[in-house]
């Protein structure tokens, strides 16, 4: 087993990556249930691609070079996060104005997505032409240092605390938005909160693991868990379990095969989803089961 050797012989190289991956699994898996149920996968895509615009903005301030001081790294993170939250709120406001037509939301996200990529491309081209997009797109978990790992843990704790705090109005809104409004839930605020949490999770995951893995973590665990149970609390727990299993298995796959960790985790998460789909076919037919 190379995995055990690596973890024993190179602790400062592999342990931070494992810690960060677990923190991301926890962070994204809870949100992914809501992302899947509220059909927000495309919004997640839009937010992650807004990160390109955020990097462009960071480049203007000289924060997009290959080697940054720890302070500059944090500054870059804050700039990208701010840009993405602003984009998410922009999408939220645009789509709230057009409640009837789903197309308007899709259109708003599409516009934000392509515009951000264009802005990012132009600004990075001008201010930081040697910036490596690959690391941004696919990330590289094994570059994670201890400070990054602890940042992921901190963000994860913060987002989960906010989700816990808002769990009742959030679940009510997610299940029945119109009734929630009539029962006194501030539905606009709940929606904005979810968009902001989604932006925070996406940017953190993207920074450490790349756009692709961020999307995978925000969709696959929730989709798998929803195949397995028809109880909200159980689904949340299963989503976390699916994410943790998928991420750990992906890291082991990566260590054993020397494949990059991001794609390896995407493979294992997809495998978890397929297993859940097959295993859960009976479980998620409550009309038959409950009779």
């Amino acid at each position: 087993m190379k995995t055990l050797e690596y973890l024993r012989d190179y602790p400062d190289l592999f342990w931070p990556a494992c810690l960060a991956a677990l923190a991301l699994a926890l962070l994204c898996s809870m949100l992914s249930v809501l992302v899947v149920l509220k059909r927000m996968a495309f919004i997640g895509q839009g937010i992650s691609h807004a990160g390109f615009g955020g990097i462009g903005l960071a480049a203007v301030f000289g924060l997009a070079s290959a080697s940054l001081s720890p302070g500059a790294t944090i500054a870059q993170f804050v700039v990208v996060l701010g840009f993405c939250i602003a984009s998410a709120l922009g999408v939220g406001i645009l789509s709230a104005q057009h409640k009837q037509g789903q197309t308007h939301e899709d259109t708003a996200i599409g516009i934000v997505l392509v515009l951000s990529m264009a802005i990012g491309s132009v600004l990075v081209g001008i201010y930081s032409p040697r910036f490596q997009w690959e690391s941004f797109l696919f990330g590289y978990l094994l570059n994670t240092a201890w400070p990054d790992a602890w940042m992921a843990v901190g963000v994860s704790v913060g987002v989960l605390a906010a989700l816990f705090w808002a769990r009742r109005p959030m679940a009510f809104w997610a299940f029945d938005p119109r009734a929630a409004e009539a029962f006194g839930v501030r539905t606009g605020a709940v929606r904005v909160l979810l968009l902001v949490l989604l932006a925070v999770a996406t940017v953190t995951a993207m920074r450490l693991a790349g756009v692709v893995l961020a999307s995978a973590l925000l969709i696959l665990p929730g989709a798998a868990a929803l195949r397995l149970s028809s109880r909200f609390g159980v689904v949340m727990g299963l989503s976390v379990a699916c994410a943790v299993v998928g991420v750990l298995a992906g890291l082991v796959l990566s260590f054993e095969t020397n494949w990059p960790p991001g794609p390896s985790i995407v493979f294992t998460l997809t495998a978890v989803y397929l297993v859940a789909s097959v295993a859960g076919r009976r479980a998620f037919a409550p009309s038959v089961q409950a009779g």
Binding site: L37, K38, R168, P169, A171, F172, A174, F175, D176, A179, F183, G184, V185, L226, S229, S230, R231, F232, V234, V235
Partner: peptide, 19 residues
């Protein structure tokens, strides 16, 4: 309502009772 949501009838009522 989003009927694909994983929720039982009892939990629907509890959502209002615990809000």
């Amino acid at each position: 309502a989003e009927l694909a949501f994983p929720i039982s009838a009892r939990q629907v009522v509890l959502q209002a009772a615990t809000l």
